[in-house]
């Protein structure tokens, strides 16, 4: 495979923004391109990730294109998925060898609607949608399965939240303090569930020597893979994430020591499931960015995990990092990316 690296990353998140998608995106895309050192015309491919249902209107990516200066016309595509999958598409595109740089962005304003109700429209329309069940209910069923199997405790879940909130600068409440809160959807408490967040992110990928020219320490993508599972939660072992394990193996997570992992776990117990599926030992620093307990902008949260992992390679604070992104109810679909600095 051709060497491809992340050379810059920018993101913006907030609980609620009065800006539109373009107003949120334009400065973040600008920052990512500026800090990459590339001229815009060097970008040979642009790809984004978003979901029309967040704003309830078709073609949100069409309007967002105004933020990407698509003139003269650009080679461009869009996935109705988290931006981490857009990054995967860009990585594939760069493998072909005719272009050297790609821009990836993602956006979404979850605060405009009732996010649980919006995401419930992703469920099986015949068996599940008529019940009025939503993704949070599935997360709660999954958490109970973890507790029943003895794979974690409510305190373990609270500890994930406490660490994430601390690292995101949202306060120093301990796990025991968090556990005093009442259940929201037992066994989930509010701190186990992701905050509603508006957000955008942008990443610039560059191949080979051009990446080395632009940055003294590019974050090389040494492996990237993604897998999906069956949609019906009733046919799956909810306490395991075999798709994460498959993707991790294909991406080569276990080939060398991992310094840190950015795990996209919307619900606290899911971090425990994913961490195990990735095969990470206790020495690995998890989610130094704070992860989902800090901010969870739907459609860019996965791309931000990749960007945050890359940031720590780019700044020299880590040598080998793993990034993970998820989609669908109960961790149905998972992407794993291994990033390394220059030896």
């Amino acid at each position: 495979m051709r060497d491809v690296a992340i050379v810059s990353f920018a993101a913006s998140t907030t609980p609620h923004s009065n800006l539109d998608d373009v107003e949120m995106l334009a400065p973040v895309i600008h920052e990512a391109i500026e800090s990459s050192g590339l001229a815009r015309r060097e970008i040979g491919f642009t790809v984004s990730g978003s979901c029309d249902y967040l704003c309830g209107r078709p073609f949100s990516f069409l309007m967002a294109l105004d933020a990407a200066s698509a003139w003269p016309p650009i080679s461009e595509s869009h996935v109705e998925m988290d931006g981490a999958w857009a990054l995967y598409e860009a990585w594939v595109r760069l493998q072909i060898g005719d272009i050297d740089a790609a821009l990836v962005y993602a956006f979404g304003k979850a605060s405009q609607g009732d996010l649980n109700a919006v995401m419930a429209t992703q469920l099986d329309p015949y068996y599940l949608a008529p019940l009025g069940v939503d993704a949070e209910c599935f997360a709660a069923l999954q958490a109970r399965a973890m507790l029943d199997a003895g794979r974690c405790t409510e305190r373990d879940m609270a500890a994930v939240a406490a660490r994430g909130r601390r690292d995101a600068g949202l306060g120093a409440a301990s796990a025991d303090e968090l556990l005093r809160a009442p259940y929201k959807l037992a066994p989930l408490r509010a701190h186990d569930c992701p905050p509603v967040t508006d957000g955008v992110a942008a990443v610039v990928l560059v191949a080979g020597d051009r990446a080395r020219q632009l940055h003294k320490r590019p974050a090389w993508i040494r492996g990237i893979d993604h897998r999906i599972e069956a949609p019906s939660p009733g046919v799956r072992d909810l306490t395991r994430s075999p798709s994460t394990a498959l993707a991790a193996r294909a991406a080569g997570v276990g080939r060398a020591k991992v310094d840190l992992a950015e795990i996209h776990a919307p619900y606290t117990h899911q971090e425990i499931i994913v961490r195990e599926a990735l095969g990470l030992d206790a020495s690995v620093v998890i989610n130094p960015s704070g992860g989902a307990p800090g901010a969870h902008p739907v459609m860019s949260a996965g791309l931000i995990r990749v960007g945050e992992a890359a940031r720590r390679i780019l700044d020299g604070s880590a040598q080998r990092a793993v990034a993970h992104a998820t989609a669908g109810p109960c961790l149905q679909q998972n992407l794993v990316c291994v990033l390394e600095g220059e030896q």
């Binding site: 009065n18 800006l19 539109d20 107003e23 249902y53 405009q112 429209t121």
Partner: peptide, 19 residues
Amino acid sequence: GMLSPVHLEFTISPGATLS
């Protein structure tokens, strides 16, 4: 067949520039 109602409520902001 079946009938499948979808009802989602939003609060839409047109953004700062259009506002």
